[in-house]
Amino acid sequence: METLNVGDLTIHWLNGGVTHMDGGAMFGVVPKPLWSKKYAVNELNQIELRTDPLFFQWEGKNVLIESGIGKGKLNDKQKRNYGVHEESEIEASLATLGLSPNDIDVILMTHMHFDHACGLTKYEGDELVSAFPNATIYTSQVEWDEMRNPNVRSRNTYWKENWESIQSQVTTYEEEMEVLPGIKMVHTGGHSNGHSIILLENNGEKFIHMADIMPTHAHKNPLWVLAYDDYPMTSIGAKEKWITEAIEGEYWFLFYHDAEYRGIKWNRDGEIVDKVGREK
């Protein structure tokens, strides 16, 4: 389990499973000869995308960012289509920290696509129940509304199996919300209409999780947006704003999907000055 220690904050990446998605879709209109120099691709033109939640303790609360791909939630066809070679082992990861899913107090959901939200529920026999029964789950109101009433495009990624069992646990916000002192969720739109990013500030150190408007370090160029984005120009605008602010402010960039890096700090010249890599 990789960790990032900055001051008195320790962030752990739990084993949330993995997907392998089409590289062309993940880099949109960017030609493969360009993006393939920055991110590994396999013979099926797929790139590895982890789905590993970030765990940390904050103000006496146990906090998760995202929830993983889940376990026992996908059928064989879905596993094949999404390149899921490994499902979540969140309980085992938490156990190494002396915790269980019952100990999670807060879950920050940047959006509710299946690869982020499948881990919110689990099967007990034939019944789906909350995987984190004592947690308050935060997401934007726009995202929560579309999750429950998807359109013809989004219904492929917003599944009732991921929300029906957790309705009583969800708290929503409009444009932004300070969930705990120093933790802010900001609605950006772009990847989905309700997509948000997460900002952390602890003893002068700053962190940003841009979720799927910047899913990997290779998406740092504001113009490199996903074909999956519902509103690509909104993604570009949000990336221009927040990447600039984060680099100027010497933030750590934190990733959920990146198969190479867990976190990166860039300087103003675009050089990596600090990083946490993924053990393979």
Results as ranks from 00 to 15, higher is better:
2 E>A: 15
2 E>K: 14
4 L>E: 07
7 G>W: 04
11 I>P: 03
12 H>D: 09
15 N>Y: 12
16 G>Q: 00
19 T>C: 11
21 M>K: 14
22 D>T: 12
25 A>I: 12
25 A>W: 13
26 M>C: 15
27 F>T: 01
28 G>A: 12
28 G>F: 05
30 V>H: 04
35 W>E: 04
36 S>H: 12
37 K>W: 11
39 Y>E: 09
40 A>V: 13
43 E>V: 12
43 E>H: 13
45 N>C: 07
45 N>D: 15
46 Q>S: 12
48 E>F: 07
49 L>T: 06
50 R>P: 01
52 D>V: 01
53 P>M: 07
55 F>V: 03
63 V>T: 03
64 L>M: 08
65 I>S: 03
66 E>N: 10
69 I>G: 05
70 G>K: 08
71 K>V: 08
72 G>R: 10
72 G>I: 11
74 L>V: 10
74 L>C: 08
74 L>N: 10
77 K>S: 10
77 K>L: 11
82 Y>V: 05
83 G>A: 03
83 G>Y: 01
84 V>T: 14
84 V>S: 13
86 E>V: 05
87 E>D: 00
88 S>K: 01
89 E>W: 03
90 I>D: 09
92 A>W: 05
93 S>Q: 09
94 L>Y: 02
95 A>H: 13
100 S>Q: 11
100 S>F: 06
100 S>M: 06
101 P>Q: 00
102 N>W: 07
103 D>C: 00
103 D>F: 00
104 I>W: 02
104 I>G: 02
106 V>E: 05
107 I>E: 02
109 M>I: 02
110 T>M: 12
112 M>F: 14
113 H>G: 11
115 D>W: 12
116 H>C: 09
116 H>N: 09
117 A>W: 06
119 G>V: 01
122 K>D: 04
124 E>Q: 14
124 E>D: 12
132 F>H: 02
132 F>S: 02
132 F>K: 02
133 P>K: 03
134 N>I: 06
135 A>I: 06
135 A>K: 04
137 I>Y: 00
138 Y>G: 03
139 T>D: 01
143 E>G: 11
146 E>W: 07
152 V>Y: 11
153 R>Y: 14
154 S>K: 10
156 N>L: 12
163 W>M: 05
164 E>W: 02
164 E>S: 07
170 V>N: 00
173 Y>T: 09
175 E>F: 08
175 E>T: 14
176 E>L: 10
177 M>V: 13
178 E>C: 07
179 V>C: 11
180 L>K: 07
187 H>K: 15
193 N>P: 09
197 I>R: 08
198 I>Q: 12
200 L>W: 00
207 F>A: 05
208 I>D: 00
209 H>A: 13
211 A>E: 01
213 I>F: 05
214 M>S: 01
214 M>W: 01
216 T>W: 09
219 H>K: 09
221 N>W: 04
223 L>D: 15
224 W>A: 09
226 L>C: 10
226 L>H: 13
228 Y>R: 12
229 D>A: 06
233 M>E: 14
234 T>R: 13
234 T>E: 15
235 S>Q: 01
236 I>H: 04
237 G>Y: 00
238 A>K: 04
238 A>S: 15
239 K>S: 10
240 E>A: 07
242 W>C: 01
248 E>H: 10
249 G>K: 05
250 E>S: 14
252 W>K: 01
253 F>E: 05
256 Y>N: 03
257 H>A: 13
260 E>A: 09
262 R>L: 08
266 W>V: 03
268 R>C: 07
269 D>K: 15
276 V>N: 06
276 V>G: 05
279 E>T: 14
